[in-house]
Simulated assay, not measured.
Amino acid sequence: MSVADLVPLLPTWQAHVLAFLVGGSYVGSLYVSQNARLTYESENAVDQAKERVRRRDDPDVIRARLTAVTASTVLSCVVLCGVVYAMLDGPSKSDALSVTAELLGLRGLHGTLLPCLIAPVLYAGPLYVSYLSESLLPWQHFWGIDTLIPNRGQNGAVLQAIRNYVAAPITEEVAFRACILAVYGMSGSSRNKMIFLSPLWFGIAHVHHGWEVYTRLGRTTFAAQQAAFSVVFQTMYTTLFGFHCAFLFLRTGSLLPPMASHVFCNIMGLPDVSDAIARFPRRKLHIIAAHLLGILGYIYVLRSWTAGIHGVYWPAL
């Protein structure tokens, strides 16, 4: 089936409302439970005594937030299924679950291996730097679990890894990719609009981190400046990342490639060419060349490695 088979189409304003509810419930769930809210040191000893300091990486905070976003994501999927059920006609209403699964990209793994490898192509430069650091390949000196969990012995380190490499990629891709793209797909939005506009919800959803930065740094003028910089920077790169994942999701009709990209990018972090050159000055030209080749390779494989895979959002012509 094609998403165009769902008629009548969802009005665009309803798609916007549903997208807002998906993103809003995800972010809002982080603040519903007191255990999930962050608190920092206060200059007032009385206020500090009233409430225990809770930071983002505290085990109790991580557990509470994982529970909250999981519940929010499941609720978004249930609501999407309800919308699909309302849009289907007559006997076809019984297919609401299977249609919802198709819209969410919960399809087979056939043809999705190469799309999962597109992000590593883009990261050719950082991967080369990891090789120089002797942490990329199993036989290198610093390769091992400590690369993923550097502070394994500290309290909550494993929970942080679960959050960063498992829970966040799954819940964020289901909510901000699958659910939001599904409602826009059902509204008849063009693929270009879905690729370049829907990730704005993902970028905006990270704005709340600015308040955390502002509070953590003491709510001063300097804190406000740092929070503003953090918001702009994080919104930009999460939106750019959203373009990539939205394209993969629509092109393949599967949630696996964007989810794999999310995990990989969380493991690798943001590339830092200047730091890499400072660490390995004799390999400066090699490092620059590897980063440029990664960008050129990404542009080439983005379409070629997703060709021939057709799903509900990108049917065969």
Rank of each mutant, 00 (worst) to 15 (best):
residue 191 R to K: 13
residue 202 F to S: 12
residue 164 N to V: 12
residue 204 I to S: 03
residue 243 F to P: 10
residue 264 F to H: 10
residue 181 L to N: 03
residue 195 I to H: 06
residue 253 G to E: 05
residue 255 L to E: 05
residue 201 W to R: 01
residue 214 Y to N: 09
residue 187 S to R: 06
residue 254 S to E: 02
residue 225 Q to T: 13
residue 262 H to F: 06
residue 258 P to K: 02
residue 245 C to Y: 09
residue 261 S to W: 13
residue 266 N to Q: 07
residue 224 A to P: 00
residue 241 F to M: 12
residue 229 F to G: 15
residue 175 A to I: 03
residue 226 Q to V: 12
residue 170 I to W: 09
residue 224 A to T: 05
residue 266 N to T: 03
residue 174 V to M: 13
residue 176 F to C: 06
residue 246 A to W: 07
residue 220 T to C: 07
residue 174 V to P: 10
residue 180 I to C: 10
residue 263 V to G: 01
residue 268 M to K: 09
residue 191 R to G: 11
residue 205 A to C: 09
residue 267 I to M: 15
residue 239 T to M: 14
residue 199 P to R: 03
residue 166 V to F: 14
residue 256 L to M: 14
residue 166 V to M: 10
residue 179 C to L: 07
residue 187 S to V: 04
residue 189 S to M: 07
residue 176 F to T: 02
residue 232 V to H: 09
residue 205 A to Q: 03
residue 213 V to H: 08
residue 209 H to N: 08
residue 217 L to A: 09
residue 211 W to R: 15
residue 210 G to Y: 05
residue 267 I to F: 14
residue 245 C to T: 15
residue 262 H to I: 06
residue 195 I to N: 08
residue 177 R to D: 06
residue 257 P to F: 02
residue 177 R to A: 15
residue 211 W to S: 11
residue 180 I to T: 02
residue 249 F to G: 02
residue 170 I to H: 01
residue 167 A to F: 13
residue 256 L to N: 07
residue 177 R to W: 01
residue 252 T to Q: 05
residue 238 T to L: 06
residue 207 V to R: 02
residue 266 N to A: 14
residue 210 G to M: 02
residue 186 M to T: 05
residue 212 E to D: 15
residue 215 T to C: 12
residue 221 T to N: 13
residue 207 V to A: 11
residue 228 A to C: 07
residue 240 L to G: 08
residue 238 T to E: 04
residue 218 G to D: 04
residue 216 R to S: 11
residue 237 Y to W: 15
residue 192 N to S: 15
residue 246 A to P: 06
residue 217 L to C: 06
residue 264 F to G: 08
residue 224 A to R: 08
residue 210 G to D: 08
residue 240 L to Q: 05
residue 221 T to F: 12
residue 185 G to M: 06
residue 227 A to G: 00
residue 250 L to R: 01
residue 192 N to I: 12
residue 218 G to W: 02
residue 235 T to P: 07
residue 195 I to D: 04
residue 180 I to E: 00
residue 262 H to S: 09
residue 171 T to D: 08
residue 247 F to T: 08
residue 181 L to I: 08
residue 194 M to F: 04
residue 203 G to T: 03
residue 169 P to M: 05
residue 242 G to P: 00
residue 228 A to F: 11
residue 226 Q to Y: 03
residue 252 T to S: 07
residue 180 I to K: 02
residue 206 H to R: 08
residue 237 Y to T: 06
residue 203 G to R: 03
residue 183 V to H: 01
residue 234 Q to N: 14
residue 217 L to N: 12
residue 184 Y to F: 15
residue 171 T to Q: 15
residue 192 N to G: 14
residue 201 W to F: 15
residue 177 R to T: 14
residue 217 L to E: 13
residue 198 S to C: 15
residue 234 Q to S: 13
residue 186 M to K: 01
residue 229 F to Q: 12
